[in-house]
């Protein structure tokens, strides 16, 4: 049909999907070396820690890897032999606490995201309203959220509600702010383009404004996911009788350093897994944002 087809175009074709270009060279040998070095490093830290706990510093303050391991085992499994441990992992106790924290986190995330998206979009599109309320929102936004926790406990009790509200508040502001900006900073050129194609108001919204704002919503949610966990755990530490935050604070209250470390290890594993999942989801959803070089 066209002559343009017969000519091999002098363009570099980027690879499929092309997620993080920076990571690619580290695959293979270099990656293996990195991994091994990391393992050795962590091992060395553990050895030094163990040595220090036995010879230099009172384990009351720093516990020791062996003790933390024992506490972890006690927390995560029931039984003494490795076989029993394997069968009984994770223990109902651990599941109980984890589930509680997850529940707060996920509900906080859902409510916070919903509210943040709706309010952000409305205020972003309704310019006058947005300008009117913006300073107020900034004022609350700049308040350390932790300071709100006692108020929420007062209002919503020491049950799960206050934790959900606290987590949702943190999420709300992150998502709200992103959505607000996203709904305001819609590329006018894109709007003009579809208007010339004959788009009506609704089509301009659905084809350009909403998707454009949604990419900002995603960015906000991406940011908010780890914070929703922070919110849940912090609220638990203030007043609760279950959850990961409770495990940390109750161990600390009993001067059980090993128990604190064990709960921290669990928390670390949880947050690393969550962040990994979010990163995966992001690279799928926001593939178009990857800039090829």
């Amino acid at each position: 049909m066209s002559r343009a087809l017969e000519v091999e175009l002098p363009v570099e074709r980027p690879g499929p999907a092309a997620p993080s270009l920076a990571e690619r060279p580290s695959k293979g040998r270099r990656g293996l070396v990195l991994l091994l070095t990391r393992v050795v490093l962590v091992g060395a830290i553990l050895v030094v820690w163990q040595y220090a706990a036995e010879r230099l510093i009172d384990p009351f303050w720093i516990s020791s890897p062996a003790e933390v391991w024992a506490r972890l085992r006690k927390l995560a499994v029931v039984g003494d032999s490795p076989w029993e441990a394997l069968v009984n992992f994770p223990s109902t106790d651990l599941v109980f606490h984890l589930r509680y924290t997850f529940q707060e986190m996920i509900l906080g995330l859902v409510y916070g995201t919903l509210a943040g998206t709706v309010v952000g979009f409305v205020l972003g599109r309704a310019r006058f309203l947005g300008d009117l309320i913006n300073p107020l929102i900034i004022a609350i936004y700049s308040l350390p959220k932790l300071a709100l926790a006692p108020l929420f406990i007062l209002w919503f009790g020491i049950g799960i509600e206050s934790k959900i509200v606290f987590s949702a508040t943190i999420v709300f502001f992150l998502v709200f702010y992103n959505t607000f900006i996203g709904a305001r900073e819609v590329d006018q050129d894109l709007v003009d383009v579809v208007r010339i194609f004959g788009a009506n108001r609704f089509q301009v919204l659905s084809a350009i404004v909403v998707p454009s704002a949604l990419t900002w919503v995603f960015a906000g949610v991406r940011l908010a996911v780890p914070y929703s966990l922070v919110g849940a755990v912090v609220a638990e530490m203030m007043a609760s009788n279950r959850g990961l935050g409770f495990l940390i604070s109750s161990a600390a209250n009993q001067f059980d350093t090993g128990g604190v470390f064990a709960a921290l290890v669990v928390l670390m594993i949880v947050s690393v897994s969550i962040n990994g999942l979010v990163g995966r989801g992001e690279s799928v959803l926001l593939r178009w944002k990857v800039v090829s070089r």
């Binding site: 590329d187 050129d189 894109l190 003009d192 383009v193 208007r195 010339i196 194609f197 004959g198 084809a207 350009i208 998707p211 454009s212 990419t215 178009w288 944002k289």
Partner: peptide, 18 residues
């Protein structure tokens, strides 16, 4: 807006998420 014309602006104005 004149919907009878096609307008190629200086910027390519492609929709980045499409």
């Amino acid at each position: 807006v004149n919907t009878r014309v096609g307008y190629m602006t200086q910027k390519d104005s492609l929709v980045p998420w499409r």
